[in-house]
Structures are given as structure tokens and as C-alpha cells.
């Protein structure tokens, strides 16, 4: 059943992209929360660029980067036009959103609590694991969900870098595009409906997490005052 196949492929793509982004986005966000210097400015600009570029341009750049004339050849041979390429395209486009959500979540953690852990004998990683992650877990989860939602909906960069090959690199968005091009509107509507349901659920959970994080912070600052 084709509907199920494209949906599963989109879910897989988005899931792999989200998991792949998690650790790098966490490190970038950790750096941006702690630092305000020139390096942070440039880093922020670099990871945010996909927000400002047309996704089609991002796909074009990826095609060059991982292509036969790009810097990663021959390591990246055969990568373009695969489901991995779909995940990479999704990850790059979603990355700035995830970083921004992480920065917001990590910003709620009092740096003195992190220092307290260091002072009690914890190394940097240990303090991250024991203090930052538990206290920012809702912000982190919200960021990952946002990344998932954006990856699930990704179209422009994907179609350039991974193509639109039915049964191979055709996810939900490109399938909708193909149906519209072919004039098959009822199929297109059906696929769009699936997108709405899955995206809506993920977004609802995300919004709930953000609200919970905010409430916890308000409650905590209230009890201290």
C-alpha cells in the first residue's frame, strides 16, 4: 500500500534526522548559551543560515557538498538520491530550529547549579548529565519534537538532494507534489490529511511541553521569592 509506504518513509527520515541532530544541536546550543563572543556570533549565524535560505538552495548546496566535485568525495559516493540524503536534507533545514529551542531550554538552567555540581566533584559531562539534562529535559524534548515536525514536512531541499523516486526517496511531501502534478487531487488530499494528523499531534505535544517548562520555571521562581 503506497500511502503507508510513503508515510513510513517520511517517519523514518524524520526520526533519523532528529536523532542525528540531537547531540550536535545540544553542543552548539550549550556553547551559544554560555558564550557571547565573536565565535558564538559566527557559529549562530552559520547554523541559522538554513532558516534564511530557500530550501531549494540548501538542497543545491548539499548536492554539491556531497557530490562528485564536492569536498567529501569519494567518501560520500552514492549518498545523494538515497533515503539517507532525505534525512541529511531534513536535518540541515531543521537544525536551526532545534538549536533555538535547546538554547531556550538550557537558558532556564541556573549556571550556578551546574557549577555546584562541578564544585562537588563532577566533570563537565557528568554535570551535563546529572544537572543540565534533567532540568532542561522538557526544553530538550520540545526542541527534538520541533525538529521532527520540521523534518517530517521537509520538501524543498529534499527533492533537490534526494530526488523524488517512488519507492525509494518519495516521502509524504514529495508524494503530494507528484499527485498534484498528475492532477490526482483526491490522492493528494488523502496524503495531506495524513500530514495534518501526524504533524498536528507532534506539534500539540511540543506546545504542551513548552507550556509545562514555562509553568515549572514560574513555580520555582515563585517559591524562591
Amino acid at each position: 500500500m503506497q500511502l503507508l509506504d510513503v508515510t513510513l518513509l517520511s517517519l523514518q527520515t524524520a526520526l533519523v534526522a532528529t536523532v542525528g541532530m540531537a547531540v550536535p544541536a545540544f553542543f552548539v546550543a550549550s556553547y551559544l548559551v554560555r558564550n557571547t563572543g565573536r565565535v558564538a556570533f559566527v557559529l549562530d549565524l552559520m547554523v541559522s543560515m538554513p532558516l534564511a535560505l530557500p530550501p531549494v538552495a540548501v538542497g543545491f548546496i548539499l548536492l554539491w557538498f556531497f557530490g562528485a566535485t564536492g569536498p567529501l568525495d569519494p567518501l560520500s559516493e552514492g549518498l545523494a538520491f538515497s533515503w539517507v540524503a532525505m534525512s541529511i536534507a531534513s536535518a540541515v533545514v531543521s537544525f536551526p530550529l532545534v538549536v533555538r529551542a535547546f538554547v531556550a531550554g538550557l537558558g532556564e538552567v541556573d549556571p550556578r547549579l551546574v557549577f555546584a555540581a562541578r564544585n562537588l566533584g563532577a566533570g563537565r559531562l557528568r554535570a551535563t548529565w546529572d544537572v543540565i539534562l534533567p532540568l532542561a529535559k522538557r526544553g530538550i524534548a520540545a526542541g527534538l519534537l520541533l525538529g521532527f515536525v520540521r523534518s517530517f514536512a521537509e520538501f524543498g531541499a529534499t527533492i533537490v538532494f534526494a530526488g523524488n523516486i517512488p519507492g525509494s526517496t518519495q516521502g509524504l511531501p514529495s508524494a503530494i507534489f507528484s499527485r498534484i502534478s498528475a492532477g490526482d487531487f483526491s490522492e493528494a488530499w488523502l496524503l495531506a490529511a495524513v500530514s495534518i494528523v501526524i504533524g498536528g499531534i507532534a506539534l500539540a505535544v511540543h506546545n504542551r511541553l513548552v507550556a509545562q517548562q514555562r509553568n515549572r520555571m514560574v513555580a520555582r521562581s515563585g517559591s524562591n521569592g
Binding site: 541556573d110 550556578r112 547549579l113 557549577f115 555546584a116 555540581a117 562541578r118 564544585n119 562537588l120 566533584g121 563532577a122 566533570g123 563537565r124 557528568r126 546529572d130 544537572v131 534533567p134 532540568l135 520555582r220 524562591n224
Partner: peptide
């Protein structure tokens, strides 16, 4: 040296206990 190696314990004005 990294602070975890100092073995000097700090007590903050508002405790800074781990809330979780």
C-alpha cells in the same frame, strides 16, 4: 585546574540545592 579537582566545597547564599 578544572574546578572538580579543587576539593573546596562552596555553599551559596540560596543553597543552590539540586531541585530535582
Amino acid at each position: 585546574r578544572p574546578p572538580q579537582s579543587f576539593r573546596t566545597a562552596m555553599v551559596f547564599q540560596d543553597g543552590m540545592l539540586f531541585p530535582h
